[in-house]
């Protein structure tokens, strides 16, 4: 096992980690503020990936540029889903929330199958292709772009949450919704907006995933569970927790594949996750 390979896979893992964090960010926001357990998260990602594909195909623009359209569309999509489904179970016990979102998962996955068929679809118009060399190591441009976007989204979200009235209201709702309501925050409106915002972030993530992946109706599987693992690891200790957890997962996968069998890469991540839940039940960085 050469050192170069190890370092190369460390780089790959790090870049992948940023992607993971970006995907998990929307979920972290929704779960953190609203305590809604959305098992259909991965399916949202899948639908957003399809949206990216179709918009890119019809307007003949690169996938990464579709963000300007997909993010608003998904914001509205999120609000609709919230009004139709989530709002009715927001006060319910976790089991009902899980049951209803699993129903949503089955529905969305098979809707994608019925509407868009099973063939994987990949983008044709791309600007972010190839990689560049740093010494002996290769850095993929699409992955790097995703990493940068992921950081930018994190910073913007952090600024929104700390500097704006909206953000402060969100955090107040997250901390104590009764007190926030007493102080004049419209909790229901906050929830609606947060769910929409979370979905918009999912759309941003999906647009950039599409630069190096393709989408099929089953794509949601991979992203859904991984996102939950990252949110759990990050322990809702804020946005940096999500970023750190994403990086840990990405790097752990990279290292595992270097030294052992690619077939067990998820097993290692999940095993790590279970152990972490046991020994640091509050996640790596936070209070739960």
């Amino acid at each position: 096992m050469s050192l170069e390979l190890f370092i190369q896979n460390l780089i790959n893992g790090t870049l992948l980690g940023f992607v993971y964090s970006l995907v998990a960010l929307g979920l972290a926001l929704q779960f953190g503020v609203m305590d809604i357990i959305n098992f259909g998260h991965g399916e949202f990602v899948m639908v957003a990936m399809y949206l990216t594909f179709w918009i890119s195909l019809f307007l003949a623009i690169p996938g990464s540029a579709t963000v300007v359209l997909t993010a608003p569309i998904f914001f509205v999509f999120g609000i609709i889903i919230y009004k139709l489904v989530i709002d009715k179970v927001i006060e319910a016990q976790p089991l009902s929330q899980i049951a209803v979102t699993i129903g949503l998962l089955i529905l969305l996955r098979n809707f994608a199958l019925a509407a868009w068929h099973a063939e994987p679809k990949g983008l044709q118009y791309q600007v972010l292709v190839g990689g560049f060399k740093v010494g002996d190591y290769v850095i993929s441009i699409s992955r790097l772009a995703t990493a940068i976007v992921s950081l930018v989204v994190l910073i913007v979200l952090h600024l929104i949450l700390t500097k704006t009235y909206f953000g402060i209201a969100i955090r107040a709702t997250s901390d104590d919704k009764v007190a926030a309501a007493l102080l004049g925050v419209n909790v229901k409106k906050m929830y609606t907006l947060v769910f929409g915002l979370g979905c918009a972030i999912i759309a941003i993530a999906a647009s950039f995933i599409m630069t190096f992946q393709q989408v099929e109706p089953m794509s949601g599987m991979t992203w859904g569970l991984l996102s939950w693992v990252i949110v759990a690891m990050g322990g809702l200790g804020g946005l940096s927790g999500v970023l750190a957890a994403g990086l840990i997962v990405g790097i752990a996968q990279g290292i595992e594949i270097t030294f052992w069998d690619p077939r067990a890469s998820l097993a290692i991540v999940y095993l790590l996750f279970i152990l972490l839940l046991w020994f640091k039940p509050k996640g790596l960085f936070g209070k739960r």
Binding site: I37, P94, I98, L225, W228, V229, A232, D261, R263, A264, S265, L266, A267, Y270, L271, F273, I274, L277, W278, F279, P281
Partner: peptide, 27 residues
């Protein structure tokens, strides 16, 4: 239960176990 896993965290730990075992038996 010793470390007090509840709700969604317990759910995630158990579903993760399914994937871990599946991959472990594949290898």
């Amino acid at each position: 239960f010793r470390f007090g896993l509840k709700d969604v965290w317990y759910a995630l730990a158990t579903i993760a176990l399914v994937v871990v075992l599946k991959q472990f038996f594949t290898v």
